[in-house]
């Protein structure tokens, strides 16, 4: 496993794409997410609790319309999240892309259906800046904590927001 600088905000990029368009109102927009490594690094995809911010890494989606937030994760329901596993980590080589939603999708992007025509701005923020590695652990069925915490320590600490993906809806 690579040893990474623990504070490298430029270690990766978050990119959102949506094929084609414009999109009809009343249906979710098929947004794809990609993490692109700038340097070699270790990262995980979206985990149980990542989207509502109840555990790290945080994947915080947002959709804006006419300057106001149209969709965002609700207040976290409760913190009883599933375990962090060694198999959740992926190592990315420089230039390599990874879909963090391959195992767990982001409900906000997947279920938000723009209801009015216009331009919608989609963004996604990846936040790994936990105060303690233990904030990455699950509270249900967590085993092998020592092993996964060692991996957590190798994930660069960063908070990166994707460029806005502008989606036209009519």
């Amino acid at each position: 496993m690579p040893r990474t600088d623990t504070h490298r905000a430029d270690a990766l990029r978050v990119e959102l794409t949506a094929p084609g368009g414009p999109y009809p109102a009343g249906k979710p927009v098929p947004v794809s997410v990609s993490l692109v490594a700038v340097a070699e690094l270790l990262v995980t995809g979206v985990l149980d609790g990542s989207e509502d911010g109840s555990r790290y890494p945080r994947y915080l989606p947002s959709v804006s319309f006419e300057g106001r937030v149209a969709a965002a994760p609700p207040v976290p329901e409760d913190p009883l999240t599933g375990p962090l596993l060694a198999s959740d980590f992926v190592r990315l080589a420089p230039g390599e892309a990874f879909d963090p939603c391959a195992a767990r999708t982001l409900a906000t992007f997947e279920t938000f259906a723009p209801d009015r025509p216009g331009s919608y701005a989609y963004t996604l923020t990846l936040d790994t800046e936990s105060e303690a590695p233990e904030q990455w652990l699950g509270r249900l069925g967590q085993t092998g904590a020592a092993e996964v915490l060692a991996l957590v320590r190798r994930v660069p600490r960063l908070r990166v927001t994707s460029p806005s993906l502008i989606v036209e809806v009519h």
Binding site: P73, P74, A107, T108, E110, T111, A113
Partner: peptide, 17 residues
Amino acid sequence: NYVQNYRPVSGAGGEAA
């Protein structure tokens, strides 16, 4: 289930669904 996580086998998901 979480309301926002609801994804039916077919059709729209999310809180309203």
